[in-house]
Amino acid sequence: MKGKMKKIIVSIIVLIIGALGFVTIRLAQEGFDIRVENETNKEVSGLYLTYDNIKSDINIPSIASGEKYTLNVNQNEDSNNDFSEAALKLEYKDNKGNLHTEYLIGYFEKGYTGKAVVNIKSIDENGKLEVEIKNHTSVY
């Protein structure tokens, strides 16, 4: 009987520790983890992230062919006081100076979390990118 009770207590303690660990990990993640993958045979540069009421656009450094760049966009820290809701956009200009916009997160507010992966598939002769975006957003 004592052995069975001990196993039950140990199991409860393990469950509590696991639950606390999960909550701590969820609270530690703020904003959006963004990964940009350059699947082309050329270096990609001139990319930046933006949204309405951001303090300043977030420049992405040049990404060599076959390389990845990861960053975190924290709307709780990166936004000005007027921020309430927005869409997270990847923007760049092509060789002719035309602005191109790709939506990474279609809608978010303060407190939202998530991740997005941007796969740059190809670059045409004018510098226009073909991209594939996968994202996931949570409201907590």
Score class of each variant (00 low, 15 high):
Gly31Val: 09
Glu85Lys: 14
Gly21Asp: 08
Ile34Arg: 03
Ile17Glu: 06
Asp94Asn: 13
Ile17Arg: 00
Ala28Tyr: 15
Ser56Pro: 00
Tyr51Cys: 04
Ile34Cys: 02
Gly66Ala: 07
Asn81Glu: 15
Ala87Pro: 01
Ala19Ile: 12
Lys89Arg: 13
Ile63Met: 06
Ile34Leu: 03
Leu15Pro: 00
Val14Glu: 01
Ile16Phe: 10
Tyr92Cys: 06
Val10Trp: 06
Ala19Val: 08
Val44Phe: 11
Asn76Cys: 01
Gly18Asn: 05
Asp52Gly: 11
Gln29Lys: 14
Val14Cys: 05
Asp33Val: 12
Lys42Asn: 13
Ala86Phe: 12
Asn74Pro: 06
Ile34Val: 12
Glu77Trp: 01
Leu47Arg: 03
Lys93Gln: 15
Val14Phe: 04
Ala86Thr: 07
Leu20Ala: 14
Tyr69His: 14
Gly18Lys: 04
Asp94Cys: 11
Thr70Ala: 09
Thr70Gln: 11
Glu91Ile: 14
Ala19Cys: 12
Asp57His: 04
Tyr69Ile: 07
Arg26Ile: 05
Pro61Glu: 08
Gln75Ile: 06
Ala64Gln: 12
Phe32Pro: 00
Asn53Ala: 08
Val36Gly: 06
Lys55Trp: 02
Asn80Gln: 08
Ser84Val: 13
Lys93Asn: 11
Tyr51Ala: 07
Asn59Pro: 02
Phe22His: 07
Ser65His: 01
Ile12Ser: 05
Asn80Val: 03
Glu39Tyr: 02
Asn59Phe: 02
Phe83Ala: 02
Asp94Tyr: 06
Tyr69Ala: 02
Ser62Tyr: 03
Asn76Trp: 00
